[in-house]
Simulated assay, not measured.
Amino acid sequence: MSTNDFREAALGAAARGWFVFPLRPGRKTPAIASWPEFATTDPARIRRWWATHPRRNIGVATGPSGLYVIDIDTHTDPDPLVRLADRIGVQVPATFTVHTPHGRHLYFQAPTTLELRRCTVGRIASGIDSRGDGGYIVAPGSVVAAERYRVADPHQPAALPDWLTDWLAPPPPPLVPTPAPSSPNAYVAAIISSEAARVTHAANHFRNATLFHAAFTLGRLIAAGHLTEDHARTALTAAASPHIGQHEFTRAELDRTLSNGLTYGKRYPRHLNTHPIANLGGPK
């Protein structure tokens, strides 16, 4: 690369409205201590930064740039994000994509829910991190370990798909222990009723997250044998049905969010001091 290519890559990122700052030459670490404060789209400042150190790499501050970047740190084929999408019957959308020395970066528009805009490590799957508010990524045009970050797909960043939004939703806080009702069946029924009520009364902008969290909670009980999946699906579908048609919420979105939450919850069985599903009228 010529000494001007790094600067031109930084200017190109800024022209997209992305806030850039310099990284150390050949590395992924910031060259300035207060990068969240000084990241900019100002061409004059960018030219000054790269005039004195022309081989600095380029960082993009994801939060102010309105970006949410999925960082896949593996070259396996298919990679873990594609495998996850295949497992739940969806596709990874076309979006701005960068090949990195260790995998790829998928750039998406930042979600509107503040909780989901934060950086994560391994929440989606092993080898997949994300960068949002408070984070940054190494931009295309940078070089680390003699390998260049290069654009693989020039599409504009797509909206973060609902299935990824659901997967990135933080798990609900632990339930506060309460004295068990006299009947163990009543205890499980009370959990179902509570989660269904949360879904029914969820505000529109928290609707998907609330449904996902409720499904996660019931998925844990399914995995432990306290509840059948049919019972959980029936209860939460009925609870979420009043939202269909409100603010573009569809039955397909309901089913997808519910399925994702149950799938995730079943990874973490929650064993209660109660009887198995036979006592709830489920199949033996």
Rank of each mutant, 00 (worst) to 15 (best):
G59C: 05
S142C: 02
A9K: 12
Y107I: 07
E195A: 03
K28A: 14
F96Q: 05
E8K: 14
R55S: 13
T76F: 04
T234F: 06
E253R: 15
G122K: 08
T257A: 07
P283F: 05
P171W: 14
W18M: 12
F6A: 15
A13V: 09
L227G: 02
R45S: 10
P93L: 08
N208M: 13
G225I: 07
L11F: 06
R87V: 03
L262A: 09
G261M: 09
S130K: 03
A146N: 13
F206T: 15
W35S: 10
A94M: 02
L227D: 04
L81E: 02
S183P: 03
A13F: 10
R131C: 01
A146W: 04
A61K: 05
V188P: 01
L106I: 06
H75F: 08
Y107T: 07
A10P: 05
D255A: 12
Q109T: 15
A238S: 10
R251P: 00
G225F: 11
P170H: 00
S142T: 11
E37N: 12
L11Q: 08
A214L: 05
P177M: 08
R48T: 15
R220W: 02
A202D: 00
H53D: 09
F96Y: 06
L23H: 14
T40V: 07
H155N: 12
N185A: 05
R48M: 14
R16N: 13
V121M: 14
T52I: 06
G282Q: 06
G103S: 05
I222Q: 06
P64C: 02
F19T: 14
A169M: 12
A125E: 09
P174K: 09
R104T: 03
H201Y: 12
A39I: 15
L218N: 00
G132K: 00
G219V: 09
T41W: 10
H201S: 11
Y149R: 01
D42H: 07
Y268V: 06
T120S: 13
E229H: 03
L258K: 10
R220N: 05
P157F: 05
V143L: 12
F249K: 10
R118E: 03
I58V: 15
N204S: 14
G12A: 13
T95Q: 12
R233K: 12
S182C: 04
F216I: 00
L236M: 00
A158Y: 01
P283W: 00
P111W: 04
L218T: 10
A15M: 06
L280Y: 12
S34I: 01
G135S: 03
D153F: 02
H231D: 15
A159C: 12
A202T: 09
L211T: 02
P170C: 01
V20F: 07
L221Q: 09
R207C: 11
E147R: 15
D230G: 04
W49S: 08
A61P: 02
A240V: 00
R233M: 02
I192E: 08
A139L: 05
G141W: 06
P276W: 02
V151L: 08
G225N: 01
A238W: 00
E147S: 11
T200C: 05
T217I: 07
G219N: 04
A94G: 14
N208P: 03
L168K: 09
G245I: 01
S193M: 01
G219M: 06
T52G: 11
W18C: 13
